[in-house]
Deep mutational scan, measured.
Amino acid sequence: VPQRAWTVEQLRSEQLPKKDIIKFLQEHGSDSFLAEHKLLGNIKNVAKTANKDHLVTAYNHLFETKRFK
């Protein structure tokens, strides 16, 4: 089981690129989880459509539901 890579403050910070969060989610989330949160596909394309709040919610949801690969 992966550990949380970032704190809530870090997740919301401008310093953390959306692409980093997407990469983490794609590496650790199950396909059904990723599909549900519309996070499947090319990281660049996902970054265009997903806002930061959406990614933070998905990140927290992944750990709450433990839907890891």
Rank of each mutant, 00 (worst) to 15 (best):
R67Q: 11
V46E: 03
Q3D: 14
V46T: 05
A50Q: 06
A5D: 15
Q15S: 12
I43H: 11
P2I: 08
L55I: 07
K66H: 10
A50S: 11
L40Q: 10
N51M: 08
K19S: 15
A58L: 04
K44G: 14
A47D: 13
L39K: 00
R4Q: 08
P2C: 14
H61W: 06
Q26F: 05
D53L: 05
K69S: 07
W6T: 13
H54I: 10
Q3L: 08
A50W: 06
L11W: 02
L25W: 00
G29V: 01
R67C: 15
R67W: 06
H37E: 05
E64M: 07
I22M: 04
Q15T: 12
R12F: 15
T57G: 06
F63C: 02
Q26H: 07
E27R: 09
K66Q: 13
H54P: 02
S30V: 06
E9F: 02
F33H: 02
F68G: 03
N42H: 12
Y59H: 02
N45D: 15
Q15G: 11
Y59K: 01
S32W: 08
E14F: 06
R67N: 12
K69E: 05
L25T: 00
D20L: 10
R67I: 04
V46W: 04
Q26E: 02
V56R: 03
R12C: 15
H61G: 08
L16T: 12
L34N: 04
I21A: 01
H37L: 09
R12G: 06
F63Y: 12
H28K: 08
E14V: 07
L25C: 01
F68V: 04
D31T: 12
V8A: 12
T7E: 14
E14L: 08
E64H: 05
K48H: 13
L62E: 01
N51F: 06
H61S: 13
K48Y: 11
E27F: 07
V46Q: 05
F24T: 02
I43Y: 10
R67S: 14
V56M: 05
N45P: 04
S32G: 09
L55H: 00
W6M: 11
A58V: 05
D31Q: 12
S13Y: 03
L25Q: 00
K23P: 01
V8G: 06
F24G: 01
S30T: 11
F68Q: 04
H61V: 10
T49R: 12
G41P: 05
G29D: 00
R67D: 12
D53I: 05
K38F: 12
K19W: 10
R12L: 15
D53N: 08
L34F: 00
G41M: 04
K18H: 10
F68N: 03
N45H: 13
Y59G: 01
T49F: 14
T49V: 11
R67T: 10
H37K: 07
S30Y: 02
H28Q: 08
L40F: 08
S32T: 09
T7A: 03
F33E: 00
L25E: 00
Q3C: 15
I43G: 06
R12Y: 15
D53Y: 06
S32K: 11
L40G: 09
Q26I: 06
D31G: 11
D31L: 12
K52P: 03
L39H: 00
L39Y: 01
A58D: 02
D53K: 05
K19M: 12
L55N: 00
N42C: 15
H37T: 05
R12N: 12
K38S: 12
K23G: 07
Q10G: 02
N45S: 10
Q10D: 15
K66A: 10
R12A: 13
A47M: 12
E64A: 08
K48V: 12
L39G: 00
E9G: 01
F33C: 01
V46N: 05
L16I: 15
S32A: 11
K48R: 13
W6S: 12
Q26Y: 04
E36T: 07
V8I: 11
H28S: 14
K52M: 06
N45C: 15
N60K: 05
Y59D: 01
L40E: 09
L39D: 01
I21R: 01
D53E: 14
V8M: 08
T49P: 03
K66I: 05
K52S: 04
K38A: 13
F68C: 04
G41V: 02
T49M: 13
R67E: 08
Y59A: 03
I21C: 01
L55T: 02
K23A: 11
A35Q: 10
D20N: 08
K66R: 11
T7Y: 03
G29W: 01
S13V: 02
G29Y: 01
F68R: 03
F68Y: 06
R67G: 08
P2D: 04
K69F: 05
S32Y: 09
L39I: 07
I22Q: 01
V8S: 08
F63T: 02
E64C: 11
Q15A: 13
L40I: 13
E36A: 08
K48L: 14
T49Y: 11
L39R: 00
F24M: 04
